[in-house]
């Protein structure tokens, strides 16, 4: 691969690169969240939002699921940085699906000129061992590659990417994933893996990194978010924001819900009838709509109360909150841009 050298400069160069914060926004944005909360979508929207005004962002995937390719409606991403979107205002979003096996071979080639021996290693099961079995090694390779992209500079000394956004493992595993370098550093007490783990840890625990958690206004994701934040804080990893995804529009407000409890069936039937939906008398089409519609309102009311409760719990976390709307048409590329715009409005970037 032609850009291998660019991917992995010699360690001293990137290990000694200075930490630069850009107007308070961390350059490595890690996005986690409970399964089903849409963390890949939020990570992609964030990458788009940060790419405005000519900025360049790299969106990184570490779980081999090709979620980014599906989201951007492109073919599967190779282990190669590739431009996948242009942001409003001329910015660019690149994407990379980090494959631990290739990252390891890459790493061996760069540091030990062992790239050609890869096949022999694979035959022995050594690659499989290193990337799937050896505790933490896989995670060091993944976070190491992301950190390398954060630190990389071009010839003129400018950062290759203004921001790197990582679609990270889910909340339940995020602290272990990011902190695994500590674990490896403890396990491998000397040697290059130890050194690399230490260097990666320095980036991850600095203000240059922010770990965001995506949640829904539901009990389990919120609980898991609170637990995840406690774990991240205990590991001294920098917690960024809580991003509430798929927020349903407020169709009925508190006053409406109050009225729903007291309103007479017949007056609703008459209103429906007046709107052109049939007869308001018993058995009429409008009248027959009243019960189902009120039942839906009751469900809405129950959910509304639960959501308010969860908002209160999130409010107590003491973190900046963002809310992204549920897209009525489902998630597609246009929706992604809509969410990016929403994030920009909320001054995330």
């Amino acid at each position: 691969m032609a850009d291998r050298d660019r991917c992995y400069p010699q360690p001293p160069a990137w290990l000694s690169a200075g930490l630069v914060s850009l107007e308070g926004v961390s350059r490595l944005q890690v996005v986690s969240g409970k399964g089903g909360t849409g963390k890949t979508t939020v990570a992609a929207a964030l990458a788009l939002a940060l790419a405005t005004e000519g900025k360049r962002t790299l969106l990184v995937e570490v779980e081999g699921r090709q979620g980014i390719a599906q989201l951007f409606e492109t073919e599967a991403l190779p282990y190669e940085e590739r431009k996948i979107a242009v942001a409003p205002g001329g910015g660019e979003v690149y994407a990379l699906a980090i494959d631990p096996e290739l990252a390891l071979l890459d790493y061996l080639q760069m540091f030990y000129k062992l790239g050609g021996a890869g096949r022999a290693l694979r035959k022995l099961g050594a690659i499989d061992f290193a990337t799937t079995i050896a505790p933490g090694l896989r995670d060091v390779l993944l976070t190491g590659k992301a950190c390398e992209a954060v630190r990389r500079k071009d010839r003129s000394g400018k950062f290759a990417y203004d921001y790197v956004v990582m679609d990270a493992p889910p909340t339940g595993r995020i602290t272990r994933f990011l902190n695994v370098n500590d674990e490896v550093a403890g396990l491998a007490k000397i040697g290059p893996i130890h050194n690399q783990a230490q260097a990666v840890m320095r980036v991850l625990k600095s203000p240059e990194t922010a770990v965001h958690l995506v949640t829904l206004l539901e009990e389990m994701p919120v609980q898991e978010t609170a637990d995840g934040i406690a774990e991240l804080r205990a590991a001294r990893l920098p917690v960024g924001r809580v991003i509430v995804n798929m927020v349903r529009p407020e169709v009925l407000d508190a006053a409406d819900l109050e009225l729903v409890r007291t309103v007479g069936r017949s007056s609703v039937a008459q209103a429906l009838s007046a709107a052109g939906l049939g007869g308001a008398r018993r058995g009429g089409n409008a009248e027959k709509l009243v019960d189902p519609l009120l039942a839906q309102a009751a469900e809405y009311a129950e959910r509304y109360a639960l959501e308010q409760e969860q908002r209160a719990v999130l409010g107590e976390l003491g973190l900046p909150l963002n809310e992204l709307p549920l897209l009525a048409e489902g998630m597609d590329l246009a929706g992604l841009y809509e969410l990016a715009t929403e994030l920009r409005k909320q001054e995330l970037s």
Partner: peptide, 10 residues
């Protein structure tokens, strides 16, 4: 290689 990578002790 593994020795180099992981450190002799690991």
């Amino acid at each position: 290689t593994l020795g180099k990578l992981l450190g002799g002790q690991l």
